[in-house]
Nucleic acid binder design. Structure first.
Length: 325
DNA sequence: CACGCCCTCCGCCAAA
DNA sequence: TTTTTGGCGGAGGGCG
């Protein structure tokens, strides 16, 4: 059994796939190694393998899904296009997608690829979006899906969906941000000459908050939300354990198990994310940013940013800041 | 920049 | 017996 590394990405295409629904998102992952040393292993598959003709007439070389039996993937992405509806009627494809989805950490669709995910049963009870022209059709065909027509992309646990082509790029940039850090994703967006946007309707949620929630429901969701609103409080393990009415040891253990991140690191990530947003979007002084995010002093934030992103706060603002005052 | 204190994390074991 | 909880202590690393 072949097992791919943690950051393998598999795209699934079909006849009459929209070429840009494949290549746009694909380019994001391919370019990641240009802005940091993290490389994705990107593959393209179709039901039977071989050349698949896209809606532009350009053929795409693919491997067959059956050849990937037993492989595990980090991210599975279903492209969209005019052929998506026909593809979603092919039970063999649905079975194959279902099977691979079960072996993937993240599952996503671009544009009308959402119909394939939905038909395979992978969107049941989930929030989702598709191309704006097809949101109504998606909603009426799948009552158990919560279609969010205004969203650019959605994520619900490990299930991501995106609207039109460029939304797929946005979604993948957000995935990269989650994987290797926001500064790299921003640098990537810059090199692709596009803006990095946040999913509409849930911009108040931290991306760092939605770590691969391994299994159970969000026992710590409320706590994380509270932390985000109280970044300046003391947030030691003992404090948080107190808040949850648990012993420190047990709290740390359960938190780690459910979020995949230790409490201390989680707090740091939330503080860093808040700091990044302030550095990007405001002209608050460094000291003010430091204070409102709960970092002890300037040096504290500086070292944390160097640790995580290898970029100093000043350099970060210079490169990614949008405030022109 | 360096050093020492202290917190965090985690393995380990015992108790429930 | 198995699983969950809690305490202890050491190693490592961040903070002042």
């Amino acid at each position: 059994m072949t097992s791919y590394s943690a950051k393998s990405v598999l795209f699934v295409v079909f006849p009459d796939v929209k070429l840009l629904d494949l290549t746009g998102p694909m380019q994001v992952f391919a370019d990641t190694q240009h802005v940091c040393d993290h490389a994705y292993d990107v593959r393209v598959a179709s039901l039977d393998g071989g050349d698949v003709v896209s809606d532009t007439g350009l053929p795409i070389a693919t491997v067959s899904l059956s050849a990937l039996r037993g492989c595990e993937f980090d991210t599975l992405i279903i492209s969209g296009g005019s052929g998506a509806l026909a593809a979603s009627a092919d039970q063999r494809l649905l079975d194959a997608v279902w099977s691979i989805a079960g072996r993937s950490r993240r599952i996503a669709s671009v544009c009308t690829g959402a119909f394939i995910l939905a038909q395979a049963g992978l969107l049941a009870g989930r929030r989702a979006v598709t191309h704006w022209q097809h949101c109504d059709a998606l909603q009426s065909a799948f009552q158990d899906v919560t279609v969010e027509p205004d969203a650019i992309f959605t994520r619900d646990d490990g299930i991501w969906t995106s609207a039109g082509v460029t939304a797929g790029i946005d979604m993948c940039l957000e995935m990269v941000a989650e994987d290797v850090g926001r500064p790299f994703a921003l640098a990537l967006a810059r090199s692709l000459v596009c803006y990095m946007v946040r999913p509409g309707g849930q911009s108040q949620f931290s991306t760092s908050l939605q770590w691969q929630s391994q299994s159970q429901s969000g026992q710590f969701d409320a706590l994380n939300a509270w932390i985000m609103d109280n970044l300046t409080s003391r947030l030691s393990v003992d404090d948080l354990a107190d808040k949850m009415a648990m012993s420190p040891r047990n709290f740390a253990r359960l938190y780690r198990k459910q979020t995949g991140v230790s409490p201390g690191k989680a707090v740091e990530r939330l503080r860093l994310e808040a700091a990044c947003q302030l550095l990007e979007g405001t002209n608050l002084s460094l000291t003010e940013v430091v204070r409102s995010c709960g970092f002890g002093d300037d040096e504290n934030l500086r070292r944390a940013m160097i640790r995580s992103f290898n970029v100093s706060p000043g350099e970060y603002r210079r490169r990614f800041g949008t405030s022109r005052f």
